[in-house]
């Protein structure tokens, strides 16, 4: 049995006639902390989108826990159970409080789990506040909590520190490191090479290819 959580086979992706990804073959093990780096337009966003089921590759195969993406019938349900997302802009919903934002994808809210998460991310005091009442760093921590609430196997983060200062950026990466140590696979797209060094492995994308 393979311990790969994610595996791609000969992935190619085209936007019209432009090739964004060229024959990508990567394997990611459970609990790994991967940093995908690359310049703007290198194909890193496309790769992250494909790995996270948001985008279907033009050709090639993607396996999640040995299951081919093509065979997944209900992608919404699959994402809800297996994948967490953190975006550059936190995308918290302003009219919902922090508790409601964190539990938005849950079918049944779990108070205990939310409290544990808030405590582990040191934001317990924000539970009943609204996104416009907290700082940028706190918002990103809430976004991390939202990504983790369903205990996903993989968390994808797209430039999660793009809007944070260096201290908060380092804090977020420290959280990722701790999560990966606890068995959650973390895949982060970042152009910050210094922060990328905190990952257990770096995948560099250049001109649509993985070096």
């Amino acid at each position: 049995m393979s311990s790969n959580i994610l595996k791609t086979k000969n992935i190619n992706h085209f936007y019209g006639k432009d090739q964004a990804l060229n024959n990508i073959n990567i394997e990611i093990k459970k609990g790994e902390f991967i940093a995908i780096t690359g310049e703007s337009g290198s194909g890193k966003t496309t790769l992250l989108s494909i790995l996270s089921t948001l985008l279907k590759p033009t050709n090639g195969e993607v396996y999640f826990d040995n299951e081919n993406f093509i065979d997944i019938k209900n992608l919404d349900d699959f994402r809800q159970k297996n994948i967490g997302f953190i975006f550059q802009f936190h995308y918290l919903i302003n009219y919902l409080n922090i508790f409601e934002n964190i539990t938005i994808s849950q079918k049944e809210n779990s108070n205990i789990k939310v409290n544990e998460l808030l405590k582990s991310l040191d934001i317990s005091n924000l539970r009943n506040r609204y996104p416009d009442e907290i700082s940028g760093g706190q918002k990103q921590r809430v976004a991390v909590a939202r990504a983790l609430i369903n205990e996903p196997k993989v968390v994808f983060a797209d430039e999660p520190t793009g809007n944070l200062d260096s201290k908060n950026s380092k804090n977020v990466f420290e959280i990722f490191k701790k999560l990966s140590q606890n068995g959650t696979t973390i895949i982060v797209a970042t152009h910050d090479k210094e922060l990328a060094q905190m990952a257990s492995r770096i995948i560099e994308v250049k001109d649509g290819r993985v070096n």
């Binding site: 948001l54 919404d76 349900d77 699959f78 994402r79 809800q80 159970k81 994948i83 997302f85 975006f87 802009f89 995308y91 919903i93 938005i104 994808s105 939202r146 369903n150």
Partner: peptide, 14 residues
């Protein structure tokens, strides 16, 4: 749209 985009990404069905 951002609200609905994030909901879709988090697996909330159409």
């Amino acid at each position: 749209k951002s609200e609905f985009g994030i909901k879709r990404a988090l697996g909330i069905s159409m």
